[in-house]
Write a protein that binds this DNA or RNA. Structure first.
Lengths: 148, 148
DNA sequence: CCTAACTGCTTGCATATGCAAGCATATTGA
DNA sequence: TCAATATGCTTGCATATGCAAGCAGTTAGG
């Protein structure tokens, strides 16, 4: 393989697929939400006032506004988020993190962290994980929804 | 952020999303196939006899057998792959890379490599990309469908 | 042999998601 | 002021995908 950038991106996409497949099943069984739903809650968690307009949330999740609309609806029924409108601009419909949502995302993060640990459980030195994290950090740095 | 494994996995999944979003649109417009379809062709390309049973292809793509069935059908209409049965075991239906498919995947890889290069165009030294690739290589090492 | 269990593939149904159109509201320019 | 444009959200349609059931063919145990 001559092209190192190509190799890196191929490995990045492949490892991402592997990890998602490995984590997703157990995760949603334990917490009743998907990994993507946890990501949504995590975005709210780190937003000022724990709330975001739908369009902004879509940008930070690298997805479309319609997906946010459709993700938020069932989560609202579960009480994990609520809807809030803006007094100044009636077009805005904030997605707001509720108490229950904050609790849930906290529990979910714990499970996720444990599963993330398993990814590196064999033959990884802490310094190597740090190195990987630092390099990946440069790829997500400055993007709207950086969670790390 | 106290847990380095968590941070690494979060960044890995996020950077993967970012890259996919950035690459997918232009890519499929240029080549008439999606990135996932290119991955399918690349798996065949590196398989003995440029062919694989559907179940094996599913494993290597980290997906389900039904997805492979449904991906292969339109690609067969396009002439990129063909179907071949096994003389010994009539259950097997190989997906076979055609000449046209080999040409197409070669062109697609060129475009993909160019786009991969853009991912690292700013502030990345070749040694850093190598380092990233090596670390990610450990995550995909030994998995069925390693393309790198 | 022959039946039971297994394997590979396909298909029906459910879910997830993007795009484009539509609707309501805000902003801008004359 | 008001018409044209822009923005935020939702919804209809199309595509992508997984799971479970079903079918065809193979293998194993008696």
């Amino acid at each position: 393989m001559t092209d190192i950038s190509l190799q890196s991106v191929l490995r990045l996409l492949q490892s991402s697929q592997l990890i998602e497949a490995r984590i997703a099943g157990e995760f949603s069984c334990v917490h009743g939400i998907s990994v993507n739903e946890m990501f949504l809650l995590m975005q709210l968690e780190q937003a000022p006032l724990q709330r975001l307009p739908r369009v902004e949330l879509a940008k930070r999740l690298n997805t479309s506004a319609s997906t946010v609309t459709r993700m938020a609806a069932p989560m609202e029924k579960l009480g994990l988020v609520s809807r809030q409108s803006d007094e100044r601009d009636a077009r805005l419909a904030f997605v707001v993190l509720t108490e229950a949502g904050a609790t849930r995302v906290s529990e979910a993060r714990t499970t996720f962290a444990k599963q993330a640990g398993y990814v590196f459980r064999d033959r990884w030195e802490p310094e190597e994980i740090e190195q990987l994290s630092a390099l990946l950090g440069r790829l997500v740095a400055g993007t709207p929804g950086d969670l790390s």
